[in-house]
Amino acid sequence: MSTATLPKGAEGGPVDSAENSASHLITATIRIRRFNPEVSGEASWQDFRIEIDPKERVLDALHQIKWEVDGTLTFRRSCAHGICGSDAMRINGRNRLACKTLIKDINPDKPITVEPIKGLTVLKDLVVDMDPFFQAYRDVMPFLVTSGNEPTRERRQSAADRERFDDTTKCILCAACTSSCPVFWNDGQYFGPAAIVNAHRFIFDSRDEAGEQRLEILNDRDGVWRCRTTFNCTDACPRGIEVTKAIQEVKRALITRRF
């Protein structure tokens, strides 16, 4: 197969000649925040200069470094296609998924900084301890609660009722929103946007019966009232969820419930 017949923008296949595939490679500097507690208690920056296709993703650059340059580089990734939410990291100062960020979109002329997400304990390199994040998630009871007999087939719901919480069903629990929240950075006790988004998903579900309990949990000291509406979470969400809007809807539900 000739490369000329490939559609524009397609990746060079294995039959590509070396010169052909090398022609569109660029040299990019990936500046990674390294931390290894077995070597040093201090984190430090390390630069890697690699040849890479600008249409590749930051995750591909990390793979290339780990597989070809420095095998000790540690990061999480599972599906590598923006669904599992494993590889949220701070790229050029913004929380993004490494698997959804193209090199060409983040100005490869300058060094590309890659750091672990903030507000959670760094274990090694780009891997953070996600336990507090998932604990907050568990605390809002992210599961269907019902009473009475189970229906024989399915729990029916109108399209309009489903639409009510459609936005918040998209969450992949990557922690990009929670770790971009300045209130969460302060003491880590705030439930954080992700937990509130997942509470929202059930609070506004017509089939669920524990909305009151979830509202009660989020009404407390570390609940929605600590939100400062800075919109960092909405900016950070790789799924485009309107996180701040969801938090505001929970606040409104709490107020209308009371008055």
Binding site: P132, D139, R221, G223, I255
Partner: peptide, 23 residues
């Protein structure tokens, strides 16, 4: 885990103080 319930974790207040403060 930092959020885990321990004896030193403050109890849930179950009041609307934060709501009223916000309003």
């Amino acid at each position: 885990a930092p959020r885990a319930r321990t004896a030193r974790t403050p109890k849930a207040t179950r009041t609307n103080f934060e709501l009223y403060g916000w309003l």
